[in-house]
């Protein structure tokens, strides 16, 4: 069918759209936006297949290649590209001055690595450390309770993932928060006071 003279005049125009949309997928760095581009590629691929007579291939491309694959991929990306940060409940209200800027900075920093920040609230310090040891969260944020006359100190972030610790070490200014890698030898009995406090 495709080689009849009437067909070929627009068939090539349609087929040229395929490499164009494929290039759009390749040059997209944000995973969610790349998946939308993949949807566009799937729609155009289905068009090309149907035009060349492969109706079954077009239907499979649209149903499996576009609908199912994209939905599953978005779910996978959503659950894997995330940093779960354990925080104390009600902390934001108490330390408003440092809390919000730190969260904003962390979000912006993680966004460069296509990660998003998810806050997981815990009741007390002990629950926070237990959650980190049990690998429920990737990191925990500890706010020192300053004495009434003491100067404000930056919050501590304890991360369990080495790559996250590297990113924090290079990109997070100490004035905003102090990040440390959580090692297994810190595991010891659940600390009543975090070892980080000894530095001050």
């Amino acid at each position: 069918m495709a080689d009849s003279p009437i067909m070929s005049s627009y068939a090539y125009a349609i087929m040229l759209l395929l490499p164009l949309s494929a290039a759009m997928v390749i040059f997209q760095s944000n995973p969610y936006q790349a998946l939308i581009m993949r949807g566009i590629l799937g729609a155009i691929a289905a068009l090309v297949y149907a035009m060349l007579g492969g109706a079954d291939v077009a239907l499979t491309e649209a149903l499996v290649g576009t609908m199912l694959a994209i939905t599953l991929y978005v779910v996978a990306v959503r659950s894997s590209l995330v940093m779960r940060l354990g925080v104390l409940e009600g902390e934001g209200a108490k330390n408003n001055l440092q809390w919000q800027p730190m969260l904003d900075y962390l979000r912006a920093m993680l966004k460069r690595y296509q990660l998003r920040l998810e806050l997981v609230p815990y009741a007390d310090d002990q629950a926070l450390h237990q959650a980190l040891a049990a690998k429920e969260v990737h990191g925990i944020c500890l706010m020192d309770r300053p004495e009434p006359n003491a100067e404000e100190v930056a919050p501590h972030i304890l991360v369990r993932v080495r790559r996250l610790a590297e990113i924090f070490a290079t990109e997070l200014p100490e004035a905003i928060a102090e990040a440390k890698l959580y090692r297994d030898d810190d595991l010891a009995p659940i600390p009543h006071t975090p070892t980080l406090m000894e530095e001050h």
């Binding site: 007579g53 109706a55 149903l63 609908m67």
Partner: peptide
């Protein structure tokens, strides 16, 4: 091909709704 076109036209919108729902939650 006509039947496939109709199917893609109707199912494509369902896929879009699914995708939009998940992206909205993110």
């Amino acid at each position: 091909i006509g039947v496939v076109g109709v199917l893609i036209l109707s199912v494509g919108n369902a896929a879009l709704m699914l995708l939009a729902q998940i992206i909205k939650r993110v």
